[in-house]
Design a protein around this nucleic acid. Structure first.
Length: 297
DNA sequence: ACTACTCCCTGCCAGC
DNA sequence: TGCTGGCAGGGAGTAG
């Protein structure tokens, strides 16, 4: 589920529960996520205050008062849920409320944070492609999970010149290039398809064709950057996309799936006014691509 | 250095 | 109904 807009939505949901709060107790029900959690995982968190909750690409980063940073990635099926004290709603104890509401989530609640704010934060991940890692703040620059990531697509520094430079000489398709987190960090299968549609570019087009031979951006690069930024902004505004899960931390659904123009719309009419084309599904690098062959060239 | 492919894991759904 | 194969929003690792 989680690409940049979903992770940003999760960050905004978790921030009020975690920022300024202390880890009162951390439960690890299953430590064998993408990588095994270290034995002292809970101990390194407990007693520490979260001084800030940030995001880099699809990673969440919780800054801790200890000087450590907790990195969290949702993988394919990860989600966080926040349970507040019953007092916030109708009266009663936090634990009772949690264990009551939790009955539908307990199966894959691998990690549970009990915060001093009274909030209980669960990490649920059926496929266990998600991960958590604690890194010392001063070693963050050397962190291999982060230091190969490309630019943040919503940052000011991400522009056509930067994208063209990254795609210069690339033999692979635009679809594969944009999915590569080293080129631009945070896009996944859905938003790559949607951005290419907005830029009217075929996912099959060779990536290098958005740059001149010298690596300067052309009009296609400009359109692509615009398409990427626009779709991400729109998706964040809608609270992300919900396909088979809830992804907001309050259990509410994101709404952006209703605004997909090509993703998961195989056989349906292209939404470009006057185009008249039909959305097609192909497989690229082992993953589905949706696009309109009539208006995406 | 590139690129493409495999694999990790569980759940769900269409088709038989 | 129940089984089976295919597919799913990610990305690390490996073999060319």
């Amino acid at each position: 589920m989680p690409e940049l807009p979903e992770v940003e939505t999760v960050r905004r949901g978790l921030a009020p529960a975690m920022e300024g709060a202390r880890f009162a107790k951390v439960e690890v029900h299953r430590g064998d996520l993408r990588w095994p959690l270290p034995k002292d995982f809970a101990k390194r968190l407990e007693g520490n205050t979260v001084t800030g909750l940030g995001r880099r690409a699809k990673y969440l980063l919780a800054d801790l008062s200890s000087g450590d940073v907790l990195l969290m990635h949702l993988g394919m099926s990860g989600s966080f849920h926040v349970f507040y004290e019953k007092g916030h709603h109708a009266g009663g104890g936090a634990a009772g409320n949690y264990y009551h509401e939790r009955s539908q989530h307990v199966t894959h609640d691998h990690v549970v944070f009990h915060m001093s704010s009274g909030a209980i934060v669960t990490f649920n991940d059926p496929r266990r492609f998600g991960s958590m890692k604690i890194v010392a703040r001063e070693k963050l620059d050397a962190e291999p999970l982060l230091n190969r990531l490309g630019p943040e697509p919503l940052g000011n520094e991400f522009d056509a010149a930067m994208l063209a430079r990254a795609c210069k000489g690339k033999k692979t398709s635009l679809k594969a290039a944009l999915s590569d987190q080293r080129v631009v960090a945070g896009l996944g299968n859905i938003y790559v398809c949607e951005a290419l549609y907005r830029a009217r570019l075929s996912p099959k087009r060779q990536a290098s064709t958005i740059a001149t031979r010298s690596g300067a951006p052309n009009d296609r690069a400009e359109r692509l950057v615009e398409g990427i930024k626009a779709v991400l902004h729109d998706a964040i505004k809608a609270g992300g996309s919900s396909l088979r899960d809830h992804k907001r931390t309050d259990g509410e659904l994101g709404m952006f799936q209703h605004n997909f123009r090509v993703y998961d719309r195989e056989g349906q009419k292209c939404r470009t006014p006057g185009c008249g084309g039909t959305v097609k599904r192909i497989v690229q690098n082992g993953r589905s691509t949706f696009f309109c062959p009539s208006c995406q060239k």
